[in-house]
Design a protein around this nucleic acid. Structure first.
Lengths: 171, 171
DNA sequence: TCCAAATACTTTGACGTCCAAGTATTTGTT
DNA sequence: AACAAATACTTGGACGTCAAAGTATTTGGA
């Protein structure tokens, strides 16, 4: 069922034909959406044999970068930019798999820490290898393409308020 | 809770620190994932007042571009590159909202056609206007950025076998 | 000191996506 | 003509995401 035409080109032509506006914005948005579909399919396929999916992997990776291998659930959500309920859900699953444990915060009893277990640390290493092996799904993008994507999307993220560029570091 | 550093830069530094491979691939993949999050949030927010989400809009738009305003469900899935079960689900919802009707295929009784209703056609026009007004969520991306994204992702899509470039049209 | 507001997390529920399996129909081959 | 294989769609189940509401705890004034 591989198409013999570019569905995004086709869509652009249709939009123009219908007299709809913002065709170039539409193609950019559609490209990004489709790229995400492709990557997410490849990444989850690479992680499945390791017993993870991308969100679970992200949490483990984040924990593995901290000094103690632990972080409040709220911080996890902030860093990964996902909803608190999703963090709860993901950590539930990781905990059930024995890759992470919940631990009360020593001074703030509202807060729960997610702590990487020994198994969790081993698993995240395996996953990192598996992901590197498929180049995170971006095989097919040249070095130039990758840089172009990073740079363009950086504009978008800054405009969306993802983070504030400190004045000293503006490029 | 806006961060005062770029979480993707931070992640890259962490990956390097951990000695993990394919850091540039990882940043490209993460950028695309995050861009998708941003767009999809903006797009669904713009469509909500119209009573649609992006998948439902895509189906309506696709139908509106055909001569008769109708298409077999399977074709819809092929064009939009989504799973048949998702098409069923989306069309169920559109049908419940009176924006589309199911109709048996005249000659192949396995096949079901989705037909745009008058309401559906009116709705998709409203939605197109709403989306154009927010530039499909890519406000923040300059013209150059949009072209760069399109071009880079085209590589990725071709490499992923999204479609076959006819020899006559190779660029 | 007291209490309303903010913060941290969980729960519940609405949706969406995909896979796998099931039903119906058509096609392609003996 | 007969039937296995392919095609088209639906169903049911596992997961993921987010929003809204609920519980517990801490904070920041009056």
């Amino acid at each position: 069922m591989t198409l013999d035409f570019d569905p995004i080109d086709e869509a652009a032509a249709n939009w123009r034909g219908a007299g709809w506006a913002a065709v170039d914005a539409m193609t950019a948005a559609t490209s990004i959406t489709r790229a995400h579909q492709i990557l997410s399919g490849r990444i989850d396929a690479a992680l499945a044999p390791v017993g993870l999916n991308f969100s679970r992997f992200e949490v483990l990776a984040l924990l593995s970068f901290t000094k103690e291998g632990e972080l409040p659930l709220g911080k996890v959500g902030d860093r990964l930019q996902v909803h608190p309920a999703s963090v709860t859900n993901t950590v539930n699953r990781l905990e059930a798999d024995g890759l992470v444990a919940r631990k009360p915060h020593p001074t703030d009893r509202r807060t729960t820490l997610a702590v990487l277990t020994r198994d969790g640390r081993r698993r995240v290493e395996q996953a990192a290898v598996a992901l590197a092996a498929i180049e995170f799904g971006v095989a097919g993008l040249t070095g130039d393409g990758r840089r172009a994507v990073d740079a363009a999307i950086l504009e978008l993220r800054v405009a969306a308020g993802d983070f504030v560029v400190p004045p000293s570091q503006r490029r």
